[in-house]
Write a protein that binds this DNA or RNA. Sequence first.
RNA 1: GAUCCCGUAGCUCAAUUGGAUAGAGCAACAGCCUUCUAAGCUGUAGGUUCCGCGUUCGAUUCGCGGCGGGAUCACCA
Length: 549
Amino acid sequence: MKALLQQQLNTIIAELQYPAIDINFDTPKMEAHGDLTSNAALLLAKTVGKNPRQVAQSIVERLKIDDSFLSAVEIAGPGFINFRFSTKYVVEQATKILKEYHSFGKSQAGNGKKTNLEWVSANPTGLLHAGHGRQVLIGQVIGNLLEWTGHDVTREYYFNNAGNQMRTLAESIYARYRQELGDDYPLPDEGYKGEYITDIAKEIIAAKGDTLKQTDEERTYFKRYGEEWCFKKIKLTLARLNVKHDVFYNEDSLYTTGKITEVIEEFKKKDLAYDSEGAVWFRATKFGADKDRVIVKSTGEPTYRLPDIAYHREKFRRGFELIVDIFGADHIATIPDVLNGVNALGYDTKDVKVIIHQMVSFVNGDEIVKMSKRNAKTYTLDDLIDEVGVDAVAYFFVMRSVGTHLEFDIALAKEQSDKNPVYYLQYAHARIASILRHAATAEIHVDDVATLLATTDFSLIKEKEEIDLLKKLLAFPEIVKSCAFSFEPHRLTTYLREVAETFHRFYHEHRVINDDKQLMQARLTVCLMTKIVIANGCKILSVSCPEKM
RNA sequence: GAUCCCGUAGCUCAAUUGGAUAGAGCAACAGCCUUCUAAGCUGUAGGUUCCGCGUUCGAUUCGCGGCGGGAUCACCA
């Protein structure tokens, strides 16, 4: 429809000898403004030197209106051209929801673009804490959105199992190990204080007894055991949220394959790096930073910036055309350096999309929930899932735009009532499922879509609430696309809420199960279409949609 | 002090990425269940979109300057 109108408007504009412009259509916010609107006349008015309403008038006069598509074309406000769809057109379009069913909403807009999505990437030194949930789910939903829009997505988890943090992990476990064996052995100053460290130590005692009291300098056994233990837990937590990464990329491989030194040498050759005070520095000031950054410490160990740069170069080398990184706001300072570094190596950073999400705070009703890392009792993501359930976790973490601080109300999330937005959506789905069960007893079987399409008199769908609902449902593919291309998953939750709302209104106004079997069948298809859209949307959100509540 | 994010109804947040009369949910008030799930629906009330200037047909959205909140500013990741 858009393409058709666009073509027509373009020809008319050419006929009128107006300058060619990009014609786009919006869906008006207000119902009175029709189903599609174009601001073409407003854009033309200035260059043409006419009143925008006159411009609109001259365009509309030449428009050939096919009334099987459009019921009205109006000029409104300062010069908008508003189009209103015919009922027939809307209903006809809606049948494709049934035809496409589980894939309604999918598109090939991404053209199979090879896409790397990297997120979570927590090092195996501990458990995922509740705050990690935001990143976990933003990434999960963005991954799903990219797949629904025809991107070839590789889900990647980047980790570092060497360096300071792992040493600290090993020392911490060792200290607890000694303590559990009754020795007076202190936890290192910067050691991990979490209870899980003691759990790990106890496991090691169970397996090895006190035979590891004398270990090598590197605490190799403790390091490896701790890493495996943490990774196992992290993966289990992710699995509860249906998150599965395709690739676990080990930072260490960048060293063993020489990628790190390669980057240093290349930087030095381009005079982007230099030696000073025993360290190697990156000329960040050349890119507008306030000071240069150390990329190799005087100890010989690189700082995180260097491997990050090398890693991103490897992503390009691996053939990815779109690179998506998701970071929390606490990592914001490092991003410019990495992008500048990658850029200096000759890659176009416009293909790197960095999504920075703001932090999460937790409240329990009126009470602020503290979750300091220093505290021994951390509130883990598992704890949160245990407390409020998978669906609430999945929904709540993506329901706000990534750029805004998220307040997660635990009391609200676990409340099984109308206050909780997850239930509003799931309730709509369950309600539909219930209606469809009634239909089965009336011998209409909605699971046979082919028969349904062949035998339903769709012209019986004509009530305002039905048409409003179908229009809303038909917007789904566009919503999926715009969420995917803007990397804004929260808009999907907003949209699905609107779908549920529009459905509830329809339900309230019109009985589905009734004596007029033809009418009942027509309305059942409306219900089924709604169910399909909610189910597909929930699938993208990783939220379940129950048949009964 | 610098950089980035945010500031919208009493509270939590939307706003089709520059569009028309700024919308939802909670909370408040008033209604709606002998009929398909009331975990629902309808109505009322609630606003100087932090302030100021600018850009233009048009600004919550873009630019500049303030104010307020958060994050970051390591030879930690």
